[in-house]
Amino acid sequence: MDIPATPPIIRRLRNNRAEAKDEPATPRLVAGDIRLIGGLNERLFQLLAAIESSGSINQAARKIGLTYKGAWEMIERANNLSPKILISTATGGRLGGGTRLTPAGKDFLQLFIRIQEEHRNFLEQINDRLMNNRDIVFLLRKLIMKASARNQFFGKVSQVSTGAINVEVTVSLKGGAIIVAAITRESAESLAIKSGADVVALVKVSQIIIVTDFGGYRLSARNQLQGTVSRIQKGEVNAEVVIELKGGNSVVATITNESLQALELTTGKPATAVFKAGAVILGAAS
């Protein structure tokens, strides 16, 4: 049995959907699907398009990955919500189904395709505007990133010192604070680390030591971020201490309740977050 050629309207619907899924040449910062009132979404219109193409509810359901029952439930809901019947059925269809779009159903499908095209053009315009704003792009990229490390510092590489084995990377944060990371040369090359690059520095809370009085001693740890205790969350055994830095960044550390008491930490007290350069994990936008 020959399968009829795909009508132009169906190709347009597929092309619109495919273009929305394809990864754009530039990062897409805003994305969204079309949902009509009553819970009618793009899946319904994929079904309508498949019915128009095949003339069979059974084949249309298989084409878009629905069960026969699921397709009928979607059709019944759409018919009930619409002022006019969208899909009609009759015996003796050309492919054994006999399911057809009514004139109202065809008009509805055409309307959705036009809305879909306008929606895609609208998103492209919004993304183009956002991509021209460097601060917005950087902010949204930060929000996309997911990592288990509580401490995530976004900054700019201000210095790169390459040694025989490791590379020392200095990251400048807002407010003038700096973080030094020691990574392998292979990692530096893989991340394309260079002066001026935007990076994120990740540090686990367990890697941070809090110091309130150096007692005349100097520490070997490269990172010593001075700030003020802004919040303390005490638990059964440990306490979470947040130190706010001058530029607005916050450092989170976990210490025992005994240490909390020994350091006499309270909100508003000056404190320094200390951690080694090797405890810093760097990330760079691809």
Results as ranks from 00 to 15, higher is better:
279 A>F: 09
276 K>F: 06
205 V>W: 03
228 T>M: 04
123 L>F: 14
50 A>E: 13
217 Y>N: 14
237 V>T: 10
154 F>G: 06
20 A>T: 11
282 L>F: 04
276 K>Y: 08
254 T>Q: 07
154 F>E: 11
111 L>H: 10
145 M>R: 05
243 I>L: 08
55 G>V: 02
29 L>S: 08
176 G>V: 01
279 A>H: 10
224 Q>W: 06
82 S>A: 05
229 V>L: 01
243 I>K: 01
174 K>R: 12
218 R>Q: 15
30 V>L: 03
134 R>V: 12
140 L>S: 03
32 G>S: 04
26 T>N: 08
59 Q>P: 00
240 E>K: 07
263 L>T: 00
13 L>C: 03
92 G>P: 10
83 P>M: 10
102 T>V: 02
253 A>C: 04
144 I>S: 09
284 A>T: 02
61 A>L: 05
127 N>H: 08
224 Q>S: 05
85 I>L: 15
71 A>N: 02
151 N>L: 07
27 P>K: 07
35 R>M: 13
18 A>W: 06
149 A>N: 05
251 V>I: 11
244 E>G: 11
59 Q>R: 08
113 I>V: 14
15 N>H: 14
89 T>D: 07
153 F>R: 10
60 A>D: 01
26 T>L: 15
216 G>S: 03
174 K>E: 09
184 T>Y: 01
71 A>S: 07
140 L>Y: 08
166 N>L: 10
121 N>Q: 12
248 G>M: 05
266 T>C: 09
23 E>L: 14
226 Q>A: 14
94 R>T: 12
33 D>V: 10
255 I>Y: 03
35 R>C: 13
93 G>F: 03
142 K>E: 15
140 L>H: 07
196 G>V: 05
29 L>Y: 15
222 R>A: 12
145 M>S: 05
22 D>L: 10
134 R>S: 15
210 I>V: 09
35 R>A: 15
10 I>N: 00
156 K>A: 11
266 T>K: 13
138 F>H: 14
59 Q>Y: 01
227 G>C: 09
64 I>N: 02
77 R>C: 11
284 A>K: 00
10 I>G: 00
279 A>D: 12
11 R>F: 15
263 L>V: 03
249 N>Q: 04
222 R>H: 11
39 G>E: 07
194 K>F: 04
226 Q>E: 14
240 E>A: 01
36 L>Q: 09
234 K>Y: 00
284 A>E: 00
261 Q>V: 12
31 A>V: 15
286 S>P: 14
241 V>F: 01
19 E>V: 07
40 L>V: 12
5 A>Y: 07
210 I>H: 06
199 V>Y: 01
96 G>E: 06
222 R>P: 02
38 G>M: 09
122 F>I: 09
268 G>T: 05
56 S>H: 05
175 G>P: 04
283 G>M: 02
58 N>D: 06
84 K>V: 07
183 I>C: 06
90 A>E: 15
91 T>M: 10
135 D>N: 13
267 T>N: 08
179 I>N: 01
185 R>T: 13
169 V>A: 05
42 E>I: 06
161 S>N: 11
204 K>L: 05
279 A>P: 01
